[in-house]
Amino acid sequence: MLAAAGVESPRVDAEWLAAHVLEISRGRLLLVDAMRPDELHRFTTLVAERARRIPLQHLLGTAAFRHLELSVGDGVFIPRPETELLAGWGIDRTAPGAVVVDLCSGTGAIALSVADESKAAEVYAVERSPVALSFLRRNAAAFPAVRVVEGDVTDPALLAALAGRVDVLLCNPPYVPEGTPVPPEVADHDPAEAVFGGADGLSVIRPVIALAATLLKSGGHVGIEHDDVHGDAVPELLRADGRFTEVAAHPDLTGRPRFATARLG
């Protein structure tokens, strides 16, 4: 059913749904001989919903990201595996006691991973969507270092009290150029404002770069995820700003351009 519906990974998704119904890990499915009638009914119902291209994570209620299980649902962008690379890059540059900012935080995937895997003193997770903020606050509740901030990353006055104090700034903004075809899971369930970044996909990235230059301390690091068509454009925007050095482009695990990094001063 899932394959016929065009689901990209039908067997894996079916296994996750079965494990969810049975309340076991996916790895333990080999030990299960059969489902009880009520379990089978719930399973077939979930499969039918997945065949309608409802995102797997919405059916499970959670999304895995690095070492975390994040609460997700309609109205919040589902974190992608490729963003784990940007989060890891930022974690590697987060020294004990550091101040870290995560812009366009969504579920809090990047911010919470930094809090979980580093000894940062403060991690600011910035989000403007009321729906996304509800998921962000829920996910952040167990992390005392995380400060949830309601704000618009295109506002140059955002986090003004942190100007010149931030050690690491990370951002996974909306960056898909308007009009780009996307799968039904994205088109019908991810909020458009978290996916599309204007005609060229850079309408949020441009002000984020300017904001990063204001918030970072000298020698601080910035990392910004982007569309695979922006492999040259985003590094060039960082260079053109004139305040950044050590500009670098980074591929994802498939070799496609995925995020750009730089250092202030």
Score class of each variant (00 low, 15 high):
Glu122Ile: 13
Leu56Arg: 12
Thr44Ala: 00
Val234Thr: 10
His226Asn: 06
Val126Ala: 02
Arg128Met: 03
Leu238Met: 04
Ala249Cys: 06
Glu246Gly: 04
Leu40Met: 12
Pro96His: 00
Met35Val: 11
Thr62Met: 03
Phe77Ala: 00
Pro10Trp: 09
Asp92Arg: 15
Arg26Thr: 15
Glu15Cys: 09
Phe196Trp: 14
Phe43Ser: 01
Thr261Ile: 04
Leu216Gln: 02
Gly73Trp: 15
Leu31His: 14
Lys217Met: 07
Gly219Trp: 09
Ala160Leu: 02
Pro144Gly: 01
Asp188Tyr: 13
Leu46His: 08
Asp92Val: 00
Cys104Pro: 03
Pro10Gly: 05
Gly75Ala: 09
Ala51Gln: 08
Glu178Val: 15
Leu56Ile: 04
Val166Leu: 08
Ala160Val: 05
Asp228Cys: 06
Leu159Val: 03
Asp102Asn: 05
Ala64Cys: 00
Pro55Val: 11
Val182Tyr: 10
Ala5Ile: 02
Leu2Ala: 05
Val234Cys: 04
Thr154Arg: 13
Lys119Gly: 03
Val123Trp: 12
Ala115Arg: 10
Gly97Ala: 05
His41Asp: 06
Glu225Thr: 10
Ala249Lys: 04
Val101His: 09
Leu202Ile: 10
Val186Met: 13
Ile54Val: 15
Val229Phe: 07
Ile209His: 06
Pro191Met: 02
Phe77Arg: 00
Val131Phe: 01
Arg256Cys: 06
Arg26Ala: 08
Val100Met: 04
Ser118Glu: 13
Ala98Glu: 04
Ser118Pro: 03
Arg52Met: 11
Leu216Ile: 02
Val12Lys: 04
Ser218Asp: 05
Ala64His: 12
Gly27Ser: 14
Leu30Pro: 07
Leu112Val: 09
Ile205Tyr: 02
Ala260Lys: 05
Ala125Arg: 13
Asp241Tyr: 01
Pro81Gln: 04
Ala51Leu: 08
Ala19Cys: 01
Ser134Val: 03
Val100Gly: 10
His20Pro: 04
Glu193Phe: 11
Gly106Lys: 12
Arg128Asn: 07
Ala5Gly: 02
Ile78Val: 14
Ala192Leu: 06
Ala95Thr: 15
Ala141Cys: 01
Arg239Trp: 03
Gly27Trp: 13
Arg52Ile: 00
Gly108Glu: 09
Phe244Gln: 05
Arg11Ala: 09
Ser129Ala: 14
Leu46Gly: 05
Gly198Ser: 11
Glu193His: 15
Phe43Asn: 02
Arg53Val: 01
Asp232Thr: 14
Val12Thr: 06
Thr180Lys: 13
Arg137Trp: 07
Val114Trp: 10
Asp200Phe: 11
Arg243Gln: 03
Ala145Phe: 06
Val234Ala: 00
Ala194Phe: 12
Pro144Trp: 10
